[in-house]
Amino acid sequence: MIPEGSLLAAHDLRKTYGSTPALDGASFSVHPGEVVAVMGPSGSGKSTLLHCLAGIITPDSGTITYAGRELSAMSDAERSALRRSDFGFVFQFGQLVPELTCVENVALPLRLNGVKRKAAERTALEWMERLEVDDLGPQRPGEVSGGQGQRVAVARALAASPKVIFADEPTGALDSLNGERVMELLTEAARSANVAVVLVTHEARVAAYSDRDVTVRDGRARDLEHAV
């Protein structure tokens, strides 16, 4: 069931919202340090798959294993703790806390993990430097451009040294140039830190930054290169 050596694997996930099935027997796996693109048309269940994998929602049936632990057997608190310590997130928009400054936003996951403020903000600044946005530290998200904001979000996802980053259409609201730069920085940083990335996108050029792609169609995920 679980592919050899995988960090996070899901098998036969099913999830229904009302009467519409969002996932219908989807399987998925990602290895440490691997960048996997999850593609598929709108409404195919990509985001639902990502939310299930990240333990944000629980599937109706099926198993999700992370580092040998069964996710669906965990309590909500345990899954929250796992997300704080092992996972990072990048969304399309509206993810930065508008009243916190950029550096405070980046430091937020660290602080939620109990890191002291000074230390957290120092680490946050290092990551912002890697994503070339360290000069935005004291500004608020409302005062920076979309591309800059998204880089801040990427820095935030990386700041707490997660094992997996979940990125849901991270370039969806950006133009090509900014989108490319964000993807470049994200994948580079993830590869050098051996962080796995689950990248949900419907754009091929974004998916091209991955090592492998998986297509979700009608609630089923297919790994075309390895399955056939």
Partner: peptide, 16 residues
């Protein structure tokens, strides 16, 4: 609403 959901995704505790 959206921001709250994002914070939940991060694993932010309710108590926080």
């Amino acid at each position: 609403r959206r921001l709250l959901s994002v914070l939940v995704a991060f694993g932010t505790r309710r108590s926080t």
